[in-house]
Design a protein around this nucleic acid. Structure first.
Lengths: 248, 248
DNA sequence: TAGGTGGACTTGTCCAAACAAGCGAGCACC
DNA sequence: GGTGCTCGCTTGTTTGGACAAGTCCACCTA
């Protein structure tokens, strides 16, 4: 059973993406939409709030809503899971485990994952036959057993863990920066040592706030970009000073 | 006049950041909060929705809300404006215009900015006395005059434009990736050519959806990272395939 | 013509109520 | 001891109404 406001949001989104409401034009008023969909104004507001969160429409008190964009946005699953993202976009992709072992958690990992031992996995993922991503993931002890049971060429760890134990990745914190390729990165990705990589460090937790994994993903420059749409009202992307100290 | 739900959100946020609700614990139920603040449940829901959007709390139907984090998040202004971000975080910062000229817009810029001519500005910004950012911005013609009037060492263009003509940057779209430093980048930032830079390309618009600027910002590796918290419900960060074609 | 003003329209905020849907603890039963 | 089930609690969805606050246009006036 899909909520009413979601169906309304879907229909409006479809209209925007199809060009029925071109960028820069006004959306019908909430009252008009409520009449059209036979719903209360509050329900319509929830629907347009969804579109606003996606960056498709903007709003100001007193003025009609304006269409800001017409590019589809992606779901959390597609951000979290390389495989789900690649599949949703029609890319050919693969994954391969290079190395896998249990080891004691570092102090930082213990704090992030709440786990004294971690399962360390080094994976390489390919898009269209080319290696684009080196993924170094530390899994918390409570999922380590399930992860070890997966085949080395498992396409989607996220999917496999959901199928096996109903595990859902629900929240994530991501740090994005650029780093030079180390010797191992360079070898695995087929680039020169020191060449630029886009790094995404993340910690993911379940619905209950239980940490699952901590990962350091490095993308070959040019293979992948991150895209954020935000507005003055609410935005989750923030800038932080780097770890490096500035030269004295 | 601050909205009630915002005051409630502020109070709850304060409690979370101060440790009154440690990470991993449950928040009081909506009914309890409503009683405590003397507000309707709907108002309390708006307040916790704000916290959820900031990634501080999670929620599941049927179960109590859980505290997910205790790190403060930043505002849109701090993402958009280097100066506002630096000031809010207590850093010493500077900005300097290296080059500035009007030129015809490229086809892509014309499409993004809706402007046949643009004002091209090359700026270098420093943090704690060290150059960390090279900013190449194309301003739409309708703000070019105001920008040209600013002093070359203007600290905050965002602030100056607001003071001068009441211009508010309200929406932004950002593309983040990693690139090697070009010759000019290397010279301006004091790094080796080819060393990794974190690139943020963005297009910003006003409340009315009118494009203001299109910019290519390159940060020295290690100086700045971007941080995103997201959840399965709503997330604005998406991954995109890069511009580069994969090798044949 | 330029400028101000009023009022209709639109979005933002808040309330009160009702039901649906999911979670979790305690209980009975095997 | 473990398994399954019921029931109370909590969050999710929806409605309808009311007022506040801001925008925008048409009209009036100097």
């Amino acid at each position: 059973m899909v909520a009413r406001y979601e169906r309304i949001a879907d229909e409006l989104r479809e209209e925007i993406l199809s060009g029925a409401h071109p960028v820069g034009t006004q959306l019908p008023s909430e009252a008009e939409l409520a009449a059209r969909f036979g719903a209360a104004r509050g329900t319509v507001r929830q629907a347009v709030a969804v579109l606003a969160a996606e960056g498709l429409v903007g709003s100001r008190q007193g003025a009609r809503r304006i269409v800001l964009g017409n590019a589809p946005s992606q779901s959390f699953a597609e951000l979290h899971s390389f495989a789900q993202w690649a599949r949703a976009n029609g890319y050919r992709y693969e994954g391969r485990v290079i190395e896998q072992r249990r080891r004691p958690a570092t102090a930082a990992e213990a704090a992030r994952l709440g786990s004294g031992e971690v399962l360390d996995v080094l994976r390489v993922r390919s898009l269209e036959g080319e290696p684009v991503l080196v993924e170094r993931t530390a899994y918390a002890a409570w999922v380590a057993g399930e992860v070890e049971r997966l085949p080395p060429d498992c396409e989607s760890v996220t999917q496999a863990l959901y199928d096996a134990i109903g595990l859902v990745f629900a929240y994530g914190e991501h740090l994005i920066d650029a780093v030079p390729a180390g010797a191992q990165d360079a070898r695995l990705l087929g680039v020169r040592r020191g060449s630029p990589l886009l790094r995404q460090r993340r910690v993911t937790t379940t619905h209950e706030g239980r940490p699952v994994e901590s990962s350091d993903d490095r993308y070959r420059a040019g293979s992948v970009t991150f895209s954020i749409r935000n507005s003055i009202g609410a935005n989750p992307l923030v800038r932080q000073a780097g770890d490096l100290r500035f030269r004295p």
